[in-house]
């Protein structure tokens, strides 16, 4: 008691504020990186989307002309429509991943090998997945083409058809995505409380009712993450489109991220402003989902505390 006043005087500014400053010091590198590599580019894209700029000449301010052009751009509509198809069909990865996870969640001999085999597609690069599926669909020698030819007499080259090509690419994307969701659910299933399962069993629950009322509620955190990664995966579907079709045939498999790249950076592109406008639209769409997720996370945290 007697020493406090003099003591407080002798403590340095650092010692007094240590508690408040330390978290910020630890956060500083991350915040700096985030500001420079994420926040600043976002704002600079917003700014660029109001300009006509080819990367060489001087920028020319054109107001919202890029956006009004987007409004009437057929390729943009195709990309947007394809993004919706991606979002909807990609969601299949969640139930399918759950199914495989439940199927693999048993203790038989060699289950680890089966699990790793099922997980394998997620480990290989998207580029490799794209190439493999492109060969699978290839006209004249592709396996799928041959099988269809065998049964119907006439093969279908999936990636040459404006009707099927997008679905063909999504199928290729689902393969690793299902594996990813599966691994999320497998870890979730490890944490399912055996007591509750036991209790439910005593009450006579089984089969689908057991899954729906007992298992799934306990898997909610896993489901949440699975949905988040699948939505993000669907929206940023770029590599497969680029590898498998380059957006073709005649632009029918474009998605927003690929169209943005085409306009801004590809060989026939270099319309930086227009590309930035597409990026802003894509950012807007992602924001809807991301704020939804963040809102849910905050609500859950509040609810718990």
């Amino acid at each position: 008691m007697s020493m406090t006043h003099a003591d407080r005087q002798s403590r340095t500014w650092w010692q007094r504020n240590q508690q408040t400053l330390t978290p910020w010091l630890f956060l500083a590198p991350g915040l700096l990186m985030f500001a420079v590599y994420v926040v600043w580019p976002i704002f600079s894209s917003f700014q660029l989307s109001f300009y006509d700029y080819d990367g060489l000449s001087t920028k020319e301010y054109i107001g919202t002309a890029n956006y009004s052009e987007l409004w009437g751009d057929r390729a943009f509509k195709t990309s947007l429509y394809n993004n919706v198809i991606w979002l909807v069909l990609y969601m299949l990865a969640v139930p399918l991943g759950l199914m495989i996870a439940i199927f693999l969640n048993q203790t038989v001999r060699g289950i680890r090998i089966y699990k790793s085999l099922f997980f394998f597609p997620f480990v290989i690069s998207q580029v490799v997945v794209g190439l493999m599926f492109a060969w699978f669909y290839a006209p004249n020698f592709g396996l799928l083409y041959k099988v269809i030819e065998f049964f119907t007499g006439k093969g279908i080259a999936i990636l040459a058809s404006p009707t099927y090509a997008t679905y063909g690419i999504i199928a290729a994307g689902l393969w690793p995505q299902i594996a990813y969701v599966m691994i999320l659910y497998l870890t979730g299933l490890n944490n399912v409380s055996p007591d509750q399962v036991e209790a439910a069993r005593l009450d006579g629950a089984k089969g689908f009712k057991m899954l729906w009322y007992v298992i799934l509620p306990q898997l909610r955190p896993a489901t949440f993450i699975a949905v988040v990664v699948t939505v993000i995966g669907a929206l940023r579907s770029f590599d497969l489109v680029s590898i498998m079709t380059n957006g073709g045939p005649f632009g029918s498999t474009r998605v927003l991220s690929y169209y943005m790249y085409e306009q801004a950076l590809s060989e026939y592109g270099f319309r930086m402003g227009y590309g930035a406008a597409i990026a802003v639209v894509l950012f807007g769409i992602m924001m809807v989902f991301i704020s939804g997720f963040v809102w849910k996370m905050i609500r859950d945290e509040r609810g718990m505390s």
């Binding site: 669909y137 006209p139 080259a157 990636l159 040459a160 073709g248 045939p249 005649f250």
Partner: peptide, 10 residues
């Protein structure tokens, strides 16, 4: 009509 079918994918 005589051009290779599926040329868009090759």
């Amino acid at each position: 009509p005589y051009i290779t079918a599926d040329h868009a994918a090759i």
